[in-house]
Write a protein that binds this DNA or RNA. Structure first.
Lengths: 147, 147
DNA sequence: CTTCAATTGTTGAATATTCAATATTTTCAA
DNA sequence: TTGAAAATATTGAATATTCAACAATTGAAG
């Protein structure tokens, strides 16, 4: 007689595993490109978010760049030393710190962006236009459905 | 006149970012479930890979569970202390160490699997059958095209 | 008003990961 | 057969991340 339980799924069929694997691979490629500027992926994200020119609180930023608070604080400390960003106390809520991108940060951000865009284009070539946009759509929708 | 360069893409449209975000979210959910057994996601992966009953070398295992060698070595050290897995020197190539799952490891692995399957089912419900299988297909194909 | 809970960010200690160096074994060319 | 190079795993030091505690400010109830 057949077992009532579902057949054992190999790890390579778990969505969680496929996401981790794909993320690892794409991240590795991006890391490699950004390393030409000696910048970790997280700093690219931070600069990119701040490059709208607005002030962003640490909490908001942590959420946006997928880092938890203490890790972000310490990374921002380094970026402040490198004069890529700077802190301003929020005048409307003095618990908050608003982060801004510096001129130097903007210059670097532009160079990083073209490296990142290079990668996107490389993916489009090898993986295809259609698959890429479909994958992005599905990922967005997965993220939405998880909240 | 229009700029010849591509318009600045927001970070939320980069595939690398969407993958990181989705991975973070799904991983967090899985982590939460596995925490009922006090086991990190990586140990679930290790046990799952080893639960075919065969010996797997450290290199092979590191690749399969998405960890680099030194990290895996140290995690395996802990799992050996917990008697979930054990090391055997490969008789055919004495540079290698073959990892095996213990009986205790098998018992734990089964419990972890149902937690992981729970999650898959939860995703199927909220995200849909069709989207899930399509997403998996696209992820596999992205991973393939990256090698 | 006053007080107490919630929010925000940082810090220091504990933990985990990574990098470079090492040890061992195997492979392979001379 | 020998010796150098490659492959495999581990180690220890350097880095990075996380957790829990803390400090400061705000919000809100009484």
């Amino acid at each position: 007689m057949a077992k009532p339980t579902k057949a054992n799924i190999p790890i390579t069929e778990h969505l969680a595993y496929l996401l981790a694997q794909a993320n690892r691979e794409i991240n590795r490629q991006l890391e490699l490109r950004l390393s030409k500027e000696g910048v970790p992926v997280e700093q690219w994200r931070i600069l990119k978010v701040l490059s709208d020119g607005n002030g962003h609180s640490m909490g908001e930023l942590a959420e946006a760049v997928l880092l938890n608070h203490p890790t972000l604080t310490k990374m921002i400390d380094r970026m402040v030393s490198d004069t890529l960003v700077y802190r301003v106390q929020d005048p409307n809520d003095r618990r908050k710190v608003l982060m801004f991108i510096s001129d130097r940060g903007k210059v670097l951000s532009k160079r990083l962006n073209s490296l990142a865009v290079d990668q996107e284009e490389h993916i489009l070539e090898s993986y295809g236009d259609k698959s890429t946009s479909e994958l992005k759509r599905l990922l967005e929708s997965l993220i939405d459905s998880s909240n």
